[in-house]
Amino acid sequence: MSKQPFLIAPDPTKSWILDETVSDEFDSATIDRNKWITDMRPWGDRAWSPDNLIQGDGSLRIRARYQPHTQRGNQYFYKLGILQSHRKSTYGYFEARIKGCSRFPGLCPAFWLYSNGRDRNPKYPRVTYSEIDVVEMLQGTWDTATKQISSPNRIDCNLHTRVLDEAGREQWIRPQHLPEVCSHHWNAPWDPRDDFHVYACENTPEKITWFIDGKKVAEAENLYWHLPMSVTLTMELRPPLIDWAGVDGRVPVPSESTSKGFPTEMTVDYVRCWVRRPE
């Protein structure tokens, strides 16, 4: 029998077909370049480097390292790893088994889906961008109630989108703009740095549902997440190493840059993506 989603209480009405084009057990000695993109231009505070992806012994390690440098006239303090699928997906079940990195705060191991801003769905003409964060861990989010950063066991499952307003102008919709739909988190009874856990989401035309270790932890109405999206695994910088500012929404903070805690790695045992078997 083919691999099926890891669920504590699977829906007996749903049958899944593994999509091999966006799934990987990472069992080979090298990364499958026909399946994955590993070299991307700098983006905001993030400078990607293919040598921060290390595959072997049945897993993929995505590294972040302290390496001050200048690229395209911009100053960066770290180099990070990204793995992104060539093929894009929209609806289905997306799952990865991941162990977080050792450094906290300042880094965010992430498993997410996002569109390129060009592909459109004619059924949803106002939507110009879709992003589903299956998991963002170790973010160290500032808690306005406790006046301190959140603990490492906070697991974030958020949504982001851009839509056209009545005048045809693009507007961001993010957790701070529409929290009842876009903002979701779960406080785990364990530390994601200590061991592997299975992070997943199901995207359907009606709703988005998140699962951790096979248990449903969040659900949202699918208002805008209907575009073709790349399956993506990354190491991301977070405060205090960056600030939420600038044209790209994040900028390095030179005074906080440090080699302490670097290099560090997140480890991915597998990524598996399914589509529904036709009824």
Rank of each mutant, 00 (worst) to 15 (best):
residue 115 S to C: 06
residue 31 I to Y: 03
residue 238 R to M: 14
residue 23 S to D: 06
residue 260 K to E: 15
residue 200 A to E: 00
residue 53 L to D: 10
residue 237 L to R: 00
residue 11 D to R: 05
residue 18 L to M: 11
residue 107 L to W: 09
residue 152 P to C: 08
residue 139 Q to K: 11
residue 146 T to Y: 13
residue 32 D to N: 12
residue 11 D to H: 12
residue 76 Y to Q: 05
residue 116 N to G: 14
residue 57 D to P: 00
residue 243 D to A: 15
residue 21 T to D: 12
residue 169 R to W: 15
residue 199 Y to N: 01
residue 98 I to T: 07
residue 40 M to N: 04
residue 72 R to V: 13
residue 98 I to N: 01
residue 9 A to V: 09
residue 165 D to N: 10
residue 75 Q to T: 14
residue 118 R to P: 00
residue 132 I to A: 01
residue 180 E to S: 09
residue 50 P to K: 08
residue 197 H to W: 08
residue 60 L to R: 01
residue 90 T to F: 10
residue 30 T to Q: 14
residue 51 D to L: 03
residue 125 P to R: 00
residue 195 D to W: 15
residue 203 N to M: 03
residue 249 G to H: 07
residue 105 P to K: 15
residue 124 Y to C: 08
residue 23 S to H: 05
residue 213 D to P: 04
residue 181 V to R: 01
residue 276 R to P: 03
residue 39 D to P: 10
residue 247 V to E: 09
residue 85 S to E: 09
residue 13 T to P: 03
residue 103 R to I: 02
residue 166 E to K: 14
residue 74 N to T: 04
residue 100 G to M: 02
residue 156 D to W: 05
residue 214 G to M: 11
residue 120 R to C: 07
residue 111 F to E: 05
residue 149 I to E: 05
residue 253 V to C: 05
residue 225 W to K: 13
